[in-house]
């Protein structure tokens, strides 16, 4: 078996092309990958706001609460955060407010995109 290792910053770069779920899986590959940080994060929180309990939007990369926690530990040096929110109007405003506050503490953040559209109508 070959013994090459890739430095953490290459894994970080790779993770910027992956969903949070795939980036989390990647962090279990080796020691260097376990130190990866998020430069770009695309998060779609899971919310079951419908009467039948189904998400308001369908997406294969929905981010559960554990995923948010995982991402929040690694986004200190993020340059781009993209959130697609799918909550009701009231909770959406809370989310936007809390995410805007969280983003203010990220020193390298260049872009915070909050996409509040949903299949049931948008702001």
């Amino acid at each position: 078996m070959r013994t090459p290792m890739l430095p953490s910053d290459i894994w970080t770069h790779v993770a910027s092309f992956l969903s949070i779920k795939d980036a989390a899986r990647l962090s279990g590959v080796c020691r260097d990958a376990s130190r990866l940080q998020l430069e770009h994060a695309y998060l779609i929180p899971v919310a079951r706001a419908d009467d039948d309990g189904s998400p308001l939007i369908e997406h294969t990369d929905l981010t559960p609460a554990e995923g948010f926690l995982w991402a929040s530990r690694r986004w200190a040096s993020a340059r781009v955060l993209h959130m697609r929110l799918q909550y009701s109007d009231a909770s959406r405003k809370e989310w936007m407010s809390s995410m805007t506050q969280a983003a203010a503490s990220l020193s390298r953040l260049e872009k915070l995109a909050l996409d509040c559209s949903s299949e049931r109508g948008a702001d």
Binding site: P4, I20, K21, R25, G28, C30
Partner: peptide, 22 residues
């Protein structure tokens, strides 16, 4: 072709914290 570099204990710890993604 990467060689495992985490100890079994470290790997298990990461696996447990990443169960949601696995």
């Amino acid at each position: 072709g990467l060689k495992p570099s985490l100890s079994p204990e470290e790997e298990e710890e990461i696996r447990r914290s990443n169960l949601w993604a696995l």
